[in-house]
């Protein structure tokens, strides 16, 4: 048996990668190209007419107040949900590490929610957060008119932030638990001998040692919150009330798929892609710097 981990020949690796490549071409590159093309045209839905308008679609979106409102909503949503998911995951991971025997059980239990699709969770939480029949609706029997996510943008936003953070926590948790376990036990033991309690060790040793992983999960969450939060928004608020949760990804769907505004939503998609590319570039640069520092 050969132990070489290389494929022979020029074509074998290519052929093995082909199915995945084809999927990416079909579901990413091709739609991206098409969207790029449409973003420079005024496009009729049924495709029989198409007028080149240059920057027209972009200029219109960049002049439109609802674009900036949506951008701000996206920023608020991303910042809040990323902070919440990373903080909660870090807290859970830290606590699981404290008690080795029960830790094993909780490690498994806390990963399970990862298997629940965003749209399913959205439907469940929407019922739970219903102002009339949900758990939160109970608050209205105590203080009438307190819980009104259909009118209050702040409440609706907190609802979707909670839901989206929920979908992210299990992944963050897995990564952070693994990171915490990779910290040499000597450090922790030394600190303990010096009299540092669990909280002090957590703040002064564990958190600084897993900073790269924290940064990694935050970045993944951030990109996910921009591109992958659609299901939660669609099932829970449809961007409402009054556009308070109308993040860019949802606005693109609304304009393009409900409104059949193919040109405008294509231009928005291109802008969103630029945004995601920028975030990814920041992540890349930071990791490079980190790697160089470690080397």
């Amino acid at each position: 048996m050969k132990s070489s981990a290389r494929f022979h020949g020029r074509w074998t690796p290519f052929v093995l990668g082909l199915p995945q490549l084809m999927l990416i071409v079909l579901f990413f590159y091709w739609p991206t190209l098409k969207g790029w093309w449409w973003s420079w045209h005024l496009e009729c839905p049924f495709g029989h007419c198409s007028t080149f308008v240059g920057f027209g679609n972009y200029a219109r979106e960049l002049k439109d107040g609802s674009f900036y409102a949506s951008l701000l909503t996206t920023a608020v949503f991303s910042a809040l949900s990323v902070s919440l998911s990373v903080l909660v995951a870090l807290l859970l991971a830290g606590m699981v590490e404290l008690h080795q025997r029960s830790g094993k059980l909780f490690r498994n239990l806390l990963i399970w929610p990862y298997a629940v699709a965003g749209s399913v969770l959205g439907v469940i939480l929407k019922v739970a957060a219903s102002p009339s029949i949900g758990l939160m609706g109970y608050l209205n029997t105590l203080w009438p008119g307190f819980w009104q996510p259909h009118l209050s943008g702040v409440q609706a936003m907190s609802m979707v932030v909670f839901a989206f953070a929920w979908t992210q926590i299990p992944f963050d948790f897995i990564v952070l638990v693994a990171a915490l376990r990779s910290i040499p036990t000597d450090y922790m033991a030394a600190a303990a001998i010096d009299g540092a309690g669990p909280l002090r060790r957590f703040i002064d040793i564990q958190v600084p040692m897993i900073r790269p992983q924290l940064f990694f999960v935050a970045m993944i969450n951030l990109i996910d919150s921009i591109t992958n939060s659609f299901a939660i928004i669609d099932t829970m608020t449809q961007g409402g009330p009054g556009g308070a949760t109308d993040i860019l990804a949802y606005k693109i769907y609304r304009d393009g798929f409900i409104g059949l505004d193919l040109s405008g939503s294509s231009a928005l998609s291109m802008l969103l892609m630029l945004l995601v590319l920028a975030v990814s570039a920041v992540q890349f640069v930071m990791f490079e710097r980190q790697a160089r520092r470690e080397a």
Binding site: G153, G239, G240, P241, G242, D246, R254, G259, L260
Partner: peptide, 21 residues
């Protein structure tokens, strides 16, 4: 044209008005 989008805009603005925004 774009009545589906127009209806969504109407709902959005009316929700803002009903919510006191």
């Amino acid at each position: 044209g774009f009545v589906a989008l127009f209806r969504l805009i109407w709902q959005e603005e009316v929700q803002r008005a009903l919510g006191g925004k």
